[in-house]
Write a protein that binds this DNA or RNA. Structure first.
Lengths: 129, 129
DNA sequence: CTTAATCCCATAGGTTATGTAGGGTTATGT
DNA sequence: ACATAACCCTACATAACCTATGGGATTAAG
């Protein structure tokens, strides 16, 4: 299940994408379009900024803006930052790999399937915003 | 991410599938093949039984057994019972549908994508065990 | 210089999910 | 009777999730 974090992030980013090139957009404006907790959105955008997806400008006239063109931003990136791995198991994750000690990765029938799931999900999620 | 519940269930079910037709298999035997908490597995198998995936027999010589041929059992069924919806959002779930009030389902760009993700996942998960 | 807008940061609470553990009850075959 | 095994209830520790609060730092504009 997609977390609210990622859901809200998706909505905020689409708004930011539509605002592309028009300077920073403050949280207050984003919330006007998508009713949600301002404080919660704040932490979300902060996290996206720390992961170099967004830039920000402080003070009056400040706000958030995309650091890359919208075409280069995908849901996969958002999810990886806010929710973690796309793969259903760490042992088949591309970006969050961890060895699993209770299944040997060679013979475990599960990780084969989960790798397929990962690829299937990715094929959809890498589409641009 | 797949829960441990579903992971353990998968392993237990493959063992039960291999034991098909040879009568009930007790938890003690399953655990011998897949080292895991007996108590935890107990609750898992119980849940699968309540959802008509498994049958059980008490007492000496008792244990668990599949209620259907292995070919008719898929990971999708296991996940739905133990982890819930396959779809990343309730509003696009086939088996756990719930209206979402903060996005209107017609124009929300997210649920379209998530429906695609659901289908992509399902295509893999409906394969037989 | 003052004010208002805005991002920034830390913390805390309530809820739910997760994984584990203990103890006792009931049914069954020998 | 006895041993085996499923069944059921409770409790707990940890983590994740979502929201809320209070303040601090920075900037633009008047």
């Amino acid at each position: 299940m997609l977390s609210k974090k990622s859901q809200y992030a998706f909505r905020a980013l689409t708004t930011l994408a539509r605002n592309e090139g028009k300077g920073p957009l403050p949280i207050s404006k984003i919330v006007k379009e998508h009713p949600m907790s301002v404080k919660f959105l704040e932490t979300i955008l902060l996290e996206l900024r720390k992961n170099d997806l967004l830039g920000s400008k402080k003070g009056k006239g400040g706000g958030y803006f995309l650091l890359r063109p919208p075409e280069e931003i995908s849901l996969a990136q958002i999810i990886r930052i806010l929710d973690g791995p796309i793969a259903p198991l760490k042992c088949v994750s591309l970006n969050f790999y961890e060895r699993c000690d209770d299944c040997n990765e060679v013979s475990c029938g599960l990780n084969k399937l989960m790798a397929e799931v990962r690829d299937a999900k990715l094929k959809v999620l890498v589409k641009r915003l």
